[in-house]
Measured scan of single mutants.
Amino acid sequence: MGFKLLSKLLVYLTASIMAIASPLAFSVDSSGEYPTVSEIPVGEVRLYQIADGVWSHIATQSFDGAVYPSNGLIVRDGDELLLIDTAWGAKNTAALLAEIEKQIGLPVTRAVSTHFHDDRVGGVDVLRAAGVATYASPSTRRLAEVEGNEIPTHSLEGLSSSGDAVRFGPVELFYPGAAHSTDNLIVYVPSASVLYGGCAIYELSRTSAGNVADADLAEWPTSIERIQQHYPEAQFVIPGHGLPGGLDLLKHTTNVVKAHTNRSVVE
């Protein structure tokens, strides 16, 4: 069995187990497998329904001669939608809004960016022009300005110390501490036991640490421990890039980060 097929099978099995364990909360999309990078042309966006009122959005972007996937989250909030992270750029984010209108038909009224990198804030200006209120932590807003990236308009308070959590509509926002970046936030959907790890969490097929220019490698494993301790009931975990899975993604990420750190020390 090929690795790609095995990865998709694991996603399907995880979703099936969740649907059985929580039949009222989960209505997993039966329309197909989780979209992969090879299936999404740059400039297009796919939506994948995880649970009743919960979707991931998947886009792709060219970077350094390669094409990478990027995940975000959409959560229903009454007759409105909360968006977590842009679709990595203005063109993708405009396509995301169009796809949401086509498939869901509810307005996106608020959006949260989970850290300051372009795959999370690139497209904020498109959201703002569409009347979406954009939010991020003060740290993310400051770092985005320093980096020359787009800056969300509103500040999220109460997320300055490791372990801080605040309720934001249908989700809980959690600051686990520094990891992929010093400002990275985690998003949890309690009604569906869905954990969105953003770039602080890796997919299972990833074996290298990737972009760690703004990471705190020493603190990252401790931050992941905080996530595990705060959300032990999480059933569906979405990484910032690639295929979702279960809580095993947290341990896998820790292993990859520690291996990278150990290699760096040896070198």
Rank of each mutant, 00 (worst) to 15 (best):
Val237Ile: 08
Ile74Ser: 04
Ala98Gly: 14
Thr93Ser: 04
Gln235Phe: 07
Glu80Met: 08
Gly65Ala: 10
Val132Gln: 00
Val189Ile: 10
Thr261Pro: 14
Met18Asp: 12
Glu219Phe: 06
Glu33Asp: 10
Ala133Thr: 13
Gly122Glu: 08
Ser223Tyr: 04
Ala87Gln: 00
Ser31Met: 09
Tyr12Met: 14
Gly169Pro: 06
Gln61Asn: 07
Ser113Pro: 06
Arg46Phe: 08
Ala87Asn: 04
Gly242Asn: 04
Gln103Arg: 14
Val187Glu: 05
Ser191Arg: 11
Gly210Asp: 08
Pro107Thr: 14
Val45Lys: 01
Asp64Phe: 11
Ser181Glu: 01
Ala87Asp: 00
Asp119His: 02
Tyr34Trp: 15
Pro244Lys: 02
Ser31Pro: 10
Pro23Thr: 11
Pro23Ala: 12
Val189Glu: 04
Ile100Gly: 02
Gly32Leu: 11
Val42Ser: 15
Gly169Cys: 06
Gly148Ile: 02
Ile100Ser: 03
Leu5Lys: 15
Ala259Val: 10
Ser139Gln: 14
Asp79Pro: 09
Val124Asn: 04
Pro190Gln: 08
Val266Met: 14
Leu73Gln: 01
Leu5Asn: 15
Asp248Met: 08
Glu101Lys: 14
Ile186Thr: 10
Gly246Ser: 12
Asn184Glu: 00
Leu195Val: 05
Glu267Met: 10
Ser7Phe: 12
Gln229Leu: 13
Glu99Tyr: 09
Asp164Arg: 08
Pro35Gly: 07
Gly123Val: 03
Ile151Asn: 08
Asp248Phe: 08
Ile224Thr: 05
Thr182Phe: 13
Gly123Tyr: 05
Pro41Val: 11
Ala59Thr: 10
Tyr68Gln: 09
Asn255Cys: 06
Ala130Val: 10
Asn149Ser: 12
Val112Ala: 07
Val121Arg: 02
Ala129Trp: 08
Gln49Phe: 10
Leu82Trp: 05
Arg141His: 08
Asp79Glu: 12
Val28Gly: 10
Val108Trp: 03
Gly246His: 08
Gly148Thr: 04
Glu33Thr: 09
Ala130Gln: 14
Ala165Thr: 13
Phe174Asp: 01
Ala95Tyr: 15
Lys251Glu: 12
Leu247Ser: 13
Ala192Met: 08
Asp214Trp: 05
Glu172Val: 04
Glu99Pro: 04
Arg226Met: 08
Pro41Glu: 14
Ser223Thr: 11
Ala94Gln: 14
Lys8Met: 14
Gly148Cys: 04
Ser264Arg: 13
Tyr12Trp: 12
Leu143Thr: 01
Thr140Cys: 04
Asn92Thr: 06
Gly158Phe: 06
Ser161Asp: 13
Glu157Asp: 14
Val212Pro: 09
Leu204Arg: 13
Gln49Met: 13
Ile84Trp: 00
Val108Lys: 02
Leu195Gly: 00
Ser193Gly: 13
Thr222Glu: 12
Glu233Asn: 13
Ile84Leu: 10
His57Met: 01
Gly240Phe: 04
Pro232Asn: 08
Gly163Met: 04
His154Lys: 07
Ala51Cys: 06
Ala19His: 06
Ala165Leu: 15
Pro232Trp: 07
Arg110Val: 10
Gly53Lys: 09
His180Asn: 04
Gly197Arg: 01
Asp248Gln: 12
Asn211Lys: 08
Ala209Gly: 07
Pro35Tyr: 08
Tyr68Asn: 08
Ala87Phe: 01
Asn262His: 10
Val212Thr: 10
Val265His: 11
Glu172Ser: 04
Pro35Phe: 08
Asp77Glu: 10
Tyr175Ile: 00
Val266Asn: 13
Val112Ser: 02
Ile238Asn: 04
Asn184Phe: 00
His252Arg: 03
Ala213Gly: 10
Glu99Trp: 07
Thr253Ser: 06
Ala218Leu: 14
Asp64Met: 09
Val166Arg: 10
Lys4Thr: 11
Val265Gly: 13
Ala21Leu: 13
Asp248Glu: 14
Ala209Lys: 08
Ala98Trp: 13
Asp118Glu: 08
Leu243Asp: 14
Asp29Tyr: 09
Ser70Gly: 04
Ile201Gly: 01
Trp88Phe: 03
Phe116Ala: 08
Val189Gly: 01
Val67Glu: 15
Glu147Lys: 14
Ile74Cys: 03
Ser139Asp: 13
Leu96Asp: 00
Thr114Gly: 01
Asn92Gly: 07
Arg120Val: 01
Val75Ala: 07
Gly169Asn: 04
Lys102Ala: 13
Tyr196Pro: 02
Asn262Arg: 11
Thr153Gln: 14
Asp52Leu: 10
Thr253Gln: 00
Asp118Trp: 04
Ile224Met: 05
Ala90Ser: 11
Val42His: 10
Gly89Glu: 01
Leu204Ile: 13
Thr182Ile: 11
Trp88Gly: 01
Glu225Asn: 10
Gly131Tyr: 05
Val108Thr: 06
Leu159Glu: 01
Gln103Asp: 14
Leu217Thr: 09
Gly2Cys: 10
Asp248Ile: 07
Tyr196Thr: 01
Thr86Pro: 02
Leu173Trp: 01
Thr114Arg: 02
Ala66Thr: 13
Gly169Phe: 06
Gly122Asn: 14
Thr114Trp: 00
Ser223Ile: 01
Ile227Arg: 01
Thr222Phe: 14
His241Lys: 00
Glu101Leu: 08
Leu195Cys: 01
Arg206Trp: 10
Asp118Arg: 05
Ala165Gln: 13
Leu143Asp: 00
Trp220Tyr: 07
Leu204Glu: 13
Gly131Cys: 05
Ile50Pro: 04
His117Pro: 01
Thr134His: 02
His230Gln: 13
Ser208Trp: 09
Val171Tyr: 03
Arg206Leu: 15
His230Trp: 07
Ala234Glu: 02
Ile104Ala: 00
Val11Thr: 10
Ile186Trp: 03
Ser38Ile: 08
His260Phe: 08
Glu101Asn: 14
Ala51Ser: 10
Ser208Leu: 11
Arg167Cys: 07
Val28Phe: 06
Thr207Cys: 06
Thr254Ser: 12
Leu143Val: 03
Ser62Cys: 07
Asn262Leu: 11
Ile17Asn: 09
Lys251Trp: 11
Leu73His: 04
Val189Lys: 00
Ala178Trp: 07
Ser70Glu: 04
Pro69Gly: 15
His57Gln: 06
Leu159Val: 10
Ser30Arg: 13
His241Leu: 03
Val121Cys: 03
Glu150Pro: 05
Val54His: 01
Tyr135Val: 00
Leu204Gly: 12
Glu150His: 04
Ala192Arg: 10
Lys91Thr: 14
Phe63Met: 13
Gly78Met: 08
Glu80His: 09
Val45Cys: 03
Gly122Val: 07
Val112Gln: 03
